[in-house]
Every structure is written in C-alpha cells, then in structure tokens.
Simulated scan of single mutants.
Amino acid sequence: MDTSTVSSFIDTGLISPRVIKSSLFLQGMDFPVGHKLEKRFVYDYELELIVESRGSMEIDNKIHNIKKGDIVFRKPGQQTQGIMPYCCYLICFDIRGDLRKDADNYDFHKPQEFQHYYINPILEAVPTVLSPVSSEKYTRLFDLVLKEFINRSHISDLLLKSYMLQILYHLYMDVNNFITRSTYPYSCHNKSLDMVIEHIHGNMEQKLTLSALSKIANLSPSHFHKVFTASMGISPIEYITKKRLEKSKELLVKTNLSIAEIALSCGFENIPYFSYVFKKKVLLTPGEFRKKFCYM
C-alpha cells in the first residue's frame, strides 16, 4: 500500500476534531518489561494519556521513555511501537472532521487511507511526548471523551469536539508554560518563579519592582531577571505590563469604572501613561477599545 502522506496547511479556525476512536488500555501492565507490541503505521491523529508506565514507545525509530501523566501525540504517516509495560487512554481523531471514517468499526491496526498531515502552528508546537506539570485536567478530559464516545447519541460529535478543542488548547498552552519546557535550564527555580507569578497576579494594583520580586524568588535582582526572562521569553517588566493590560481590557468591557479608576486598579501610575502604553500595545485608546467591545 502507499504509505505516503499528503501535507497541507490548515487555518486554526478550520480545526474541527471528530473523535473516531476512544479506548482505555489497562492490560499493558500485565506484560513483561520490554515486551513489544506490533509495529504499525499511524493513519490518523492520535493522543495517548499515560495512566501508568514502566515502559517506552518507539515512534519513527526514536525511543521515548514514558511515565504516568505524559501525553503522546502521534501524526499521520508515523510508525509506532509500544514497549511494555504501560496503560493509557487512546483517542484517534480527524482534525477537520470531514473524513467520515466509521467510528463504530474503526481499527487503527487495519491498513487504510492516511489522513492529511496538517501544518498549523498549534499542531506543530506540540511535541511527540509532553510532560505537563499536572495531568489532572487531561485525565478529566480524556475520561469525558471516553464516556461520551461509548454512550454516543446524535449530538455527541458536538460535545466530543468541544472536549478535543480543550485538549488541544491545553496542550498548546502547556508547551508554552515555562514549567513544562524540557529545555528550561533553571528548573531548580520553578517553585520560586511560580510564587512570583502568583504574587504578580494578586497584586497588580501595587508597585511591583524588580527588587521586590527578586526577594520573593530568593535571588539577586540580576539573576532573577535572567532566570525569569529565560523561562518566560519576556522580561519581568514586560510580563507585568502584559498582565496589567489584560486586566484593564476586562475591566473596560465588563465594568462601568472610569478609565482613571481602571488605570489605578491595574497598577498604572497615571492616566496619560496608561493611555500611552495601551495605545502602543493594543493600537486603540482605552476609550476606543471600550466602545468597540461593549454592547451599547
């Protein structure tokens, strides 16, 4: 059979995942260590949430050690082989939702047409194996997918699509979360940075200085700046400004507070500076933004 796949770009707005297989593999831990499942091609997009593991997985001739809580993302055209023991949730899905593969009789072992390999920034950002800080949200969503899939009704595709979009969203966000970056060189400071982030979010109306934040992280100001910037991709001041603008946008749309009140509650020193920063970053004045997004 032809094992080649067709690659094409897909706009994020066209991602409309349809679940064509959902199952829970619990027998894996009964296999001896090193036992290999049959090597197979991946015909559609597949996600696995590892429930328990002392095993690994070969994907395109590369061995990936997998542990509890890991997410495995496989794409059409790849070759995969499970190396026991491990247990997992499995979801096979159609990215565009238009292939019309039979969900009642879908067999990922059976030779079949390959789904297109879609190129999209979100899909390309997710690695083959992701180790999120917390797998709780994934466990909940994978379990919801399974429960709905085995109790399908005429409206299930709509609900399953919403779950899959949430999974893809969380995967992308976790990839961009500093704690989950496997290349992050300052992992020993993760907890300290987490405390700093929490402090920033809870005290945006206060004056947040580099010196004060570095004390929370128990680092010198210069080293804290280096660690923060390396992990977040932006400096502490840039991050604070970003979060203050996000909060100000919400207040502009959700409340009747004056622009002066919003500026002060978001930690901006005065209205002219708030308006300057807002216009520079958002390309609208605060008043123009409120008018654009408020129903009046």
Rank of each mutant, 00 (worst) to 15 (best):
L49Q: 03
S162L: 14
I155R: 13
E288D: 14
R18H: 08
S248D: 10
K101W: 11
K101D: 08
R40I: 09
S275C: 13
T241Y: 06
I10T: 01
L146A: 13
K161D: 03
A103C: 09
N105G: 09
D44F: 08
I155A: 12
S8Q: 06
V282T: 10
L146N: 15
D174Y: 01
Y118H: 03
A260Q: 04
K110M: 07
L257Q: 09
K21M: 12
K62I: 02
L213K: 12
F178L: 08
F73I: 00
L49Y: 05
T128Y: 00
G34N: 00
I240K: 08
D194K: 12
E58F: 05
L252I: 14
H35L: 07
S53H: 06
Y184R: 09
E58T: 01
C88T: 11
H109T: 13
L99K: 12
E124K: 06
L37I: 10
Q79P: 07
V277S: 03
P132Y: 00
F289L: 06
V42Y: 05
C88H: 11
H201S: 13
T5S: 13
D98R: 12
L284D: 05
N218Q: 11
M195R: 15
A230V: 05
K254P: 03
D194A: 15
Y295N: 06
I59M: 02
C188P: 10
D60M: 01
A263S: 13
E38T: 08
M173C: 02
S16F: 10
R96I: 08
C87Y: 02
D70N: 15
V282Y: 04
G233S: 11
L284W: 04
S258R: 03
Y163V: 09
D174S: 00
T80H: 11
S7E: 11
D11Y: 12
E288C: 09
S258Y: 03
V19E: 05
L257T: 04
N190C: 12
C266K: 01
Y169T: 11
T128R: 00
S187K: 15
L26R: 02
K67F: 08
K62V: 03
N176W: 13
M29H: 00
N218H: 13
V42G: 03
H189I: 07
P185D: 12
T139F: 15
L252T: 14
K207C: 12
G97A: 05
I150P: 10
L213D: 15
P127Q: 03
K243A: 05
N270S: 13
Q79W: 11
G97E: 06
K249D: 09
M296K: 01
S248Q: 06
G69C: 03
K291D: 14
F9H: 10
E246T: 02
I216G: 08
P32Y: 06
R290T: 10
S134E: 14
D157A: 09
Q206N: 15
R18T: 13
L168I: 08
K242W: 00
K110H: 07
E205L: 10
I179N: 02
I10K: 01
S231R: 01
L284T: 05
S187R: 14
D174P: 00
L90R: 07
L283N: 15
M57F: 10
F73R: 00
S162V: 12
H154D: 11
S248H: 09
L245K: 00
M204V: 09
G267L: 05
S214N: 08
T5R: 10
P185W: 07
H199V: 12
H189F: 11
Y186G: 10
T3P: 09
P32I: 02
H64G: 04
